[in-house]
């Protein structure tokens, strides 16, 4: 039984240009203690999916017309349910720690707020708990830095503060939305190490949202690839990386520069991501795909098991055989 289970999730936004379907029938599970990478480029719907799970889809522009999200057998889309779990059971770390921390409050108070508002802790107890957390996430001279403001921290330290805040109430599910994107490369590695260490210590589930295949390579158990609001491929990390069953995935793999071996020209994916206001019929990746045929234009492909691969490895493509043989 999965801890988090998303089924046929649809999220729409009313924009001046019309209704945009940011998430279009996404389904996936996250098991207890599992690390899952949610991959995709900007506009693929990965962040909106996370917002839907947290129950913080911006209102009134955004709405969830259909689908279900259940967490620990509770219906997260039922009124008030997500609100009660946010911060306590499900926590989130955002991309840009500078804009995500409130500039006018001291970091100690922002972390301590979790204990004060959720647990009714006194100012002194909250402060002590915040200090413990800051030490745990590796902020040097934590006792001196409790009373500093976010702008006095470096990017990496700010993200540590965010992580401390998210971990305050020992959540069972942590969603990290591009946690390292705004950081320097060396700091990225430190933050990923911290996240994986804390995850092991806490035994929590981790959903890593990123557009960077490298970031999750050594970390995730499973990957979920999203394209234009749909899940296009899902499976164990090695499986997906080595035997991509969707042309989009294999295209992403081909566009990663290799550190070793001959320096070939990178192979980019042709074309650009589709306009969500004007999606192509059938498969939305069709205009950029070399395998596309009439079937792709007419029938929207659904996730199904790939030929000769494990049942956990699925792709939404009409021609996975071609993709599998061509690349590997």
């Amino acid at each position: 039984m999965a801890l988090l289970s998303v089924r046929d999730l649809r999220v729409e936004f009313a924009t001046s240009g019309g209704v945009v379907t940011a998430v279009d029938g996404a389904s996936f599970d996250v098991g207890a203690g599992e690390t899952v990478a949610l991959l995709g480029e900007s506009g693929s719907g990965k962040s909106v999916t996370a917002q839907a799970v947290m129950g913080i889809v911006p209102k009134p522009a955004g709405r969830i017309p259909s689908g279900s999200i259940s967490y620990d057998s509770k219906d997260l889309l039922a009124p008030g349910v997500a609100k009660g779990l946010r911060g306590r059971e499900i926590a989130m770390v955002f991309q840009d720690p500078l804009s995500s921390l409130n500039p006018v409050f001291r970091v100690g108070a922002q972390i301590g707020e979790m204990f004060r508002r959720h647990r009714g802790a006194s100012r002194r107890e909250a402060r002590a708990a915040a200090l413990d957390l800051m030490k745990r996430v590796g902020i040097p001279a934590a006792s001196k830095r409790l009373d500093d403001y976010p702008h006095q921290f470096s990017g990496g330290m700010r993200q540590r503060v965010m992580i401390a805040m998210a971990l305050a109430l020992s959540p069972r599910l942590l969603i990290a939305d591009e946690p390292t994107t705004a950081l320097d490369v060396t700091v990225q590695a430190q933050i990923m190490d911290l996240l994986t260490r804390l995850q092991a210590e806490e035994g929590m589930s981790l959903v890593l949202i990123t557009h960077d295949l490298g970031v999750v390579a050594g970390v995730a158990d499973r990957v979920i690839l999203m394209y234009a609001g749909r899940v296009v491929e899902t499976g164990p990390l090695r499986e997906v990386y080595e035997h991509s069953g969707h042309p989009y995935t294999s295209g992403l793999m081909a566009s990663i520069p290799a550190l070793e071996g001959p320096r070939d020209r990178l192979v980019p994916i042709q074309g650009s991501p589709p306009d969500l206001l004007d999606l192509p019929s059938g498969c939305s990746f069709r205009p950029r795909c070399q395998y596309a045929d009439e079937q792709c234009a007419e029938v929207e492909p659904v996730l199904r098991q790939l030929p000769d691969r494990a049942s956990t490895h699925q792709a939404a493509c009409h021609h996975p055989e071609g993709v599998l043989t061509d690349v590997h």
Binding site: K83, R86, G87, F94, L101, N102, V104, F105, R117, M165
Partner: peptide, 23 residues
Amino acid sequence: GYVHTARAKGLGEGIVVLVHAMR
């Protein structure tokens, strides 16, 4: 972002608006 964070922290809408945003 910090208003989203305040919501993600599970704070009540009153605190999100009157404390985190209003300040």
